[in-house]
């Protein structure tokens, strides 16, 4: 009994030590990031139903919302976001403390990328976007969803400010991923002279695909095919 208790205590101490370590924190950020990438893929795939018209999108949304496991998945998703953000903020503060006196001149030797040097800024932009996105499209702040989600979403996309911010935010997601994917792979200890350059290119490709995929929605439904959106919305309400 005592031996079991000691073992359990040792395990939790080890886990705590791992999570507190600089590398352990990074590993958890990377794992959460990867899982969030999985969410982005499924979310984008679902959103693509919008191009199938109001019926297709509304049926998809209905099927999703009637799934009894959805609240559980949403809680898990929120937990992933919070873990990713909380650990990153902790690491950021530790990094700031690690160089209390800044350089007068800092230019480095060209290894930093636009994505890597703007991770905090794009992260903050994405967080602001998520708050607005969830408030407007899930919690119906600024307008009720009603039975026709397609009309609700396209209605928001017709607001140029909303569409512009959406496009800016998904560009931020792309920039974040352009560094994040390859960084997470490295943090998880995966490195190979042949595959690492390929992973870096695939990471970039993924970043571009995600941002272009998401941006296509406000661009198409916000600025083009107004009539089609209108007709499709009618179709959805029938």
């Amino acid at each position: 009994m005592n031996a079991a208790k000691t073992c359990c205590c040792q395990c939790s101490c080890r886990l705590f030590e791992f999570l507190e370590s600089s590398i352990g924190k990074k590993v958890m950020i990377a794992l959460a990031g990867f899982l969030l990438c999985g969410f982005l893929i499924t979310h984008l795939a679902g959103n693509m139903f919008m191009f199938g018209g109001a019926n297709a999108f509304n049926h998809y949304a209905e099927a999703l919302e009637s799934n009894p496991f959805l609240p559980l998945a949403e809680i898990g998703l929120a937990a992933l976001f919070l873990l990713h953000i909380a650990l990153t903020i902790r690491a950021k503060f530790a990094n700031m403390a690690a160089r209390p006196v800044a350089y007068e001149v800092y230019q480095g030797k060209g290894a930093r990328t636009p994505g890597s040097s703007t991770m905090a800024a794009t992260g903050a932009l994405i967080l602001a976007f998520i708050v607005i996105h969830v408030a407007t499209l899930k919690f119906e702040v600024g307008g009720s969803k009603g039975p026709d989600l397609f009309a609700h979403v396209t209605g928001w996309f017709k607001n140029p400010l909303y569409a512009g911010f959406y496009i800016l935010a998904v560009a931020g997601v792309g920039l974040h991923l352009s560094h994040g994917v390859q960084s997470a792979i490295q943090t998880l200890g995966v490195s190979h002279p042949r595959y690492t350059p390929m992973f870096r290119k695939l990471g970039l490709l993924f970043a571009v695909a995600i941002s272009v995929g998401f941006a296509s929605l406000p661009i198409y439904f916000g600025f083009f095919h107004h009539d089609m959106a209108c007709c499709a919305a009618k179709g959805g309400a029938q």
Partner: peptide
């Protein structure tokens, strides 16, 4: 010391060209 964010300025600045694959 701070946390590694895989920006690889270390490798670019290393006088001995130590590769970041060592960090992995």
């Amino acid at each position: 010391f701070g946390h590694c964010t895989n920006e690889y300025e270390c490798e670019a600045s290393c006088p001995k060209g130590i590769n970041v694959s060592n960090i992995a």
